[in-house]
Design a protein around this nucleic acid. Structure first.
Length: 287
DNA sequence: AACACTCTCAACCGCAACTGA
DNA sequence: CTCAGTTGCGGTTGAGAGTGT
């Protein structure tokens, strides 16, 4: 699937996984744990690249994965978090136990982005979603090319975006501190290298770290954030036009409000016991 | 039933970040 | 400090399922 391979992995399987491959991968990971993705396929007897194995495990085979309908609460959380931190799917997924970044990303792209867009445009612009699939009018389409078709169907939206001239920043990974993976692993008693994402506690700590290191008051992220919010900040090649600076002060205030709201969200979402744990963890990072 | 078209989501890719020598 | 190998992330793609005519 997708575009042409970046490197010729001759002899390696691609495309959809077979039940047999799934079984091999699951069996191997249950016996040896996650990690060592590069060498895993060979050891597990799979003709796949390590990357593919990791993806399959993380997005589909992991036992703690929750599949199926996304609840309205999850829905709401995704929207709110996206408004705060943008397309940082793994971070958002960290707040939704059992959900994967890929699933959330897909869900956003197919459902929520349209809904949010429609809400921003007002009640006259209803989203074209599954809900109204049955009422949907068909459009004439010249040829089958998904990506092009999508851009055709979104022509108006694209033009709208051009008018506002918003330059979306590329999502960046930010970190206040570096905590070695090994340290984290040893804390968790995990035998895996890598993210150790199976531990909810670790996810929350990492999440907390990312939130704190997000620094909404920081130059880079604050403008990136508001650009994503669709507000009138013009940013070209990292420079900010002078006329926007006054606006920014106001926007910083609303950003702070949103940031507080997000922190509140975090608090609501976890138990008191966990909260205490996180508080002390947070304190330790502010040294 | 057959066709045309749209939508979903699993899987791919490139690249950035991380790690250890 | 540098560099090579590995891992993780976000963007993109297209096969297949779903729906309307």
């Amino acid at each position: 699937m997708g575009r042409a391979p970046c490197c010729a992995k001759v002899g390696l399987h691609k495309g959809p996984w077979t039940p047999k491959e799934d079984a091999l991968l699951t069996k191997y990971i249950q016996a040896h744990g996650e990690g060592q993705w590069k060498s895993l396929p060979k050891k597990a007897g799979l003709l796949r690249c390590g990357k593919s194995c990791r993806l399959r495990w993380m997005n589909y085979l992991r036992p703690d994965i929750k599949r199926g309908n996304i609840s309205p609460e999850e829905d709401d959380l995704i929207i709110r978090m996206h408004s705060l931190i943008g397309n940082r799917w793994s971070l958002i997924a960290g707040r939704l136990p059992g959900r994967t970044d890929n699933e959330i990303k897909n869900y956003w792209n197919t459902h929520l982005s349209k809904r949010v867009k429609a809400q921003q445009l007002g009640p006259d612009h209803q989203p074209r979603d599954n809900a109204d699939k049955t009422k949907k009018k068909k459009k004439k389409k010249p040829a089958k090319n998904n990506s092009k078709d999508k851009s055709n169907s979104d022509n108006n939206e694209e033009e709208e975006e051009k008018k506002t001239k918003i330059y979306l920043p590329k999502p960046i990974r930010v970190r206040a501190l570096r905590i070695s993976r090994n340290d984290e692993d040893s804390k968790n008693g995990s035998c895996t290298s890598g993210s150790g994402s199976s531990s909810q506690e670790l996810v929350q700590k990492q999440d907390m770290m990312d939130v704190m290191s997000y620094e909404p008051w920081g130059e880079n992220d604050v403008f990136g954030f508001f650009a994503e919010e669709g507000q009138n900040i013009e940013r070209v090649n990292g420079s900010i036009s002078e006329e926007n600076i006054n606006n920014n002060e106001m926007e910083c205030e609303s950003l702070e409000r949103l940031y507080e709201e997000y922190l509140q969200l975090l608090k609501d979402d976890i138990s008191d016991e966990k909260q205490g744990e996180l508080d002390s963890f947070a304190q330790s990072l502010f040294v």
